[in-house]
Design a protein around this nucleic acid. Structure first.
Lengths: 332, 332
DNA sequence: ATGAAAGCGCTAACAG
DNA sequence: CTGTTAGCGCTTTCAT
């Protein structure tokens, strides 16, 4: 059952394949109304659907975008992927997705696999150092954009992470907290680092101690556990800490667990603000006050960017918005 | 920069495109060792990468699988998607993903879009009634499988949902609970309904009341809110209820929030067992005792099934396993 | 063991 | 306005 081809349609409509193609694509040449009618009728009668393989080979465009993410199942990347899929769908594009498990080799394999599938453009959310990905993408000669984790010389779309760290910390300071710990990473170049540095900068400006232990971002896939263990230690050894700035919802999840197990009531005798704004924050107990990444805007921007070849390959940063819930102590 | 073609390789190796193809594919005809060497060298020197579009058009195989899910960002579907992507990758296949927002029309559009992209096989997680999807898939003449939500006359892979409902309820009964409410749906044919009916059947057998209000599964995308509201009402009006069987982790999330707001301590004066086993259950406070869907097994099975044309189009069901954590009161 | 050539389904240049 | 045809890159039959 190979399905009818454009030739079958042409034969049935008593015309040529060229005309059928013109009708199907509304161009590039005009077609008489009567002929168009016959073609449409033939298409309907035969149940013809264009074979995109032929079209793609000919046009060297597949109508498909590639997306490579560290882990499709982690809430943050899942929401990002959904936003990007929505944007792609809105533009009539299909989305080919590859997950890397935060593994650099696998990231490279996935990028190659999607390039080999001839995607029209590629979106990559790098797990660690974006440099290798950028080199491959540049060499591929197709539009691309990094997402969330950017690189100074490559096009990218991300949140204003440094600012988000500042906002989160500022909010805790406004609550009157003196000793605030940051769950993140002081070094490195990813979003977690930017957020952490924003938080630390604000603490320093406001003359708050910045000596609290920082969670090292080590194996990213185990962030919750890292944050859990770090928070457990922190609460035991530094009872003066009354507030936590978690640089991702994953960190917050681990911190929440540690705090609960230590008998601290988050939102009451321990304040917590996190950054990410994934949906689950609303349903945790207590619900998370968070700086929310504008997922939809990020996804739309990323897709728009790779779909229209803009000359300047710059980085667009979107503001995160403060969502007040229970964990910061705002509503007692 | 169109990249070298097989002709360029042939020219450089001083042979024909046919032989290059034989080398690249290890067949179907043998090639002399010396010739093979020259071809390999030419491939390496030119940095040749096969254009899969040409191959796909010729072979009528794209090496791509399609996956349609209700919502890529919901933890359950996100974990399912990751498992399926892993399985596809392990088989050297790419995965084209479409999200439907639980909308029947959009589900149809996504299926059509992926069929038009000429996927070799399709996996669909239906949001509601699987029948329209099944009809389209059958007509498409490619291997397909439903996932999670099955249909009596179509191939499918799912959990043993009825049993899971029984197991969850049995566990609560073993804890000594007399009045157990089920958060799910008594009618309909989806996984939630099967789980709910399993739970109700067990309650009836053990002579427990089955009159507790059930959450109607109405707009699936708002499950958490539905469960939240239903649980709030339930706890207010039926103080005798001491245990909850949540038929999905989404229901559990809503129930947990409602219980916490009502001042009930889940795992202490209110028991909760949920079904799904998504990762986040381990990090909630309290952590969720749950019947875990074997995501990896499901994904692998689904992909295996569509990749090897098995004659019998049956439904394979996988057992869910009980994961003991805090919410049921097992560990005080 | 190798080469020439047909053709997958489509688009578009070219010719009427 | 319409038809004929080349050719996208690849695989594979057929001939040698």
């Amino acid at each position: 059952m190979p399905g009818p081809t454009i030739r079958d349609v042409a034969a049935r409509a008593g015309t040529s394949t060229a005309v059928v193609s013109y009708v199907l694509n509304d161009g590039p040449r005009p077609v008489a109304a009567a002929t168009r009618e016959r073609v449409m009728a033939a298409v309907a009668e035969l149940g013809y659907r264009r074979n995109n393989l032929g079209r793609a080979l000919r046009a060297n465009r597949t109508g498909t975008l590639g997306l490579v993410v560290p882990d499709l199942a982690k809430p943050f990347f899942a929401e990002l992927a959904r936003a990007i899929e929505d944007a792609a769908f809105a533009h009539g594009r299909r989305l080919l997705i590859g997950s890397t498990h935060f593994d650099a080799d696998r990231e490279h394999e996935q990028i190659q696999a999607l390039l080999d599938a001839r995607v029209d453009a590629m979106l990559v959310v790098p797990a660690h150092d974006p440099t290798p990905a950028v080199e491959v993408l540049r060499a591929a000669g197709i539009p691309y954009s990094l997402v969330h984790h950017t690189h100074p010389t490559a096009p990218g779309v991300a949140g204003r992470d440094f600012d988000a760290g500042r906002q989160a910390t500022r909010h805790l300071i406004e609550h009157g907290h003196q000793h605030i710990a940051v769950l993140g990473a002081a070094s490195g170049e990813g979003p977690v680092s930017h957020r952490s540095r924003g938080a630390l900068a604000t603490l320093a400006e406001r003359r708050r101690p910045t000596t609290g232990p920082l969670v090292l971002h080590c194996p990213f896939s185990e962030l919750r556990d890292d944050a859990y263990r770090a928070t457990r230690t922190l609460l035991a050894e530094h009872p003066s800490v009354t507030a936590l700035c978690a640089t991702t919802d994953e960190h917050a999840l681990g911190a929440l667990r540690a705090a609960t197990e230590a008998g601290r009531r988050v939102g009451d005798d321990l304040a917590l603000v996190s950054i990410d704004g994934t949906e689950l924050g609303a349903y945790l107990a207590p619900s998370l006050t968070t700086l929310a990444v504008p997922f939809a805007a990020l996804g739309a921007d990323a897709v728009d960017h790779v779909l229209k070849p803009s000359p300047a390959a710059h980085i667009r940063r979107h503001r995160l918005s403060l969502v007040l819930r229970r964990s910061c102590g705002c509503r007692p």
